[in-house]
Design a protein around this nucleic acid. Structure first.
Lengths: 144, 144
DNA sequence: TCAATTTCGGATAAAAAGGTCTTTATATCT
DNA sequence: AGATATAAAGACCTTTTTATCCGAAATTGA
């Protein structure tokens, strides 16, 4: 469904979001430890997220990553997926055809419309504040 | 969503299914031409499908691949996906956690339940006869 | 026997995932 | 203000996985 980069990207963003609720900034090391991901690889993904304007980064002592508290409810999970994996999971053909639309559909095209819609709706309506709340309450976890 | 192998596997099986309706057997070359896939790679995928009992193969002159007409309505798309990609798309954690269940869910676990169910239902209820019919009628295509 | 066709083992290529080291920015401490 | 330590950014390299290709062996109808 998602690439490894994207999985790490989502988990990293959620961890940053959770800490940002209390105005805490977290370092790369803290992040990869919290989400159990390779440090250097995570760094690269955070660069993408930073350039996409999803997270803010600060260099130097006490530096790290954070997200302005006021933006938490305005950022949704789809934005993260699109920033890292592009929109192929939302729009690409399930059978890999370069052309696949209503006029010339692959055998799965019609059957996947509602699945796609639901995936889209689910990720669009999940904003960082909501999802971080569940983490706060211990209802969900970022690593085993 | 699916690996390239799986995409080719589905398309190949559908093409074989379509021809098998009229008791036609098709060769590897015909298949990869019809679905626009690399010949040698397609051969390997057909071996998997053959071993999984989804398609039948015949060596020698006039050999090739086919599916017993009477089984067309009994084989569904999920079987193909599972044979090639395994069941990770149906059961694996969306964020890649090795442990992710109702008791200890990742932040996406609950949100993906219905998407998973729908994917499962869609692929399980799509049998080869149904899908091949749409191809016959020209309602869908296997290549652009 | 011969030609057609799948099977099978491995080789190669490309892409994704992960790692190392150097550079750059910046707080903090003399 | 300058030196220093800290932490991200960036360039490059290695490993692993996925995708693709090749050639020889096995099977079988004619």
């Amino acid at each position: 469904m998602f690439s490894k980069s994207c999985e790490y990207g989502i988990k990293a963003t959620l961890f940053i979001a959770q800490k940002s609720q209390w105005d805490e900034r977290v370092s790369l090391k803290e992040i990869s430890s919290a989400i159990d991901s390779p440090v250097a690889f995570t760094a690269k993904i955070l660069q993408i997220l930073s350039k996409a304007g999803i997270v803010d980064s600060t260099k130097g002592p006490n530096g790290g990553f954070d997200i302005d508290k006021s933006r938490l409810s305005k950022i949704n999970l789809k934005q993260i997926v699109v920033a890292i994996d592009g929109n192929s999971v939302f729009e690409g053909c399930a059978l890999g055809l370069s052309v696949c639309n209503e006029n010339e559909p692959c055998p799965l095209h019609g059957k996947f419309v509602s699945i796609r819609n639901q995936l889209n709706e689910t990720l669009t309506s999940s904003n960082l504040l909501n999802v971080a709340m569940d983490l706060n309450l211990g209802l969900t976890v970022l690593k085993h």
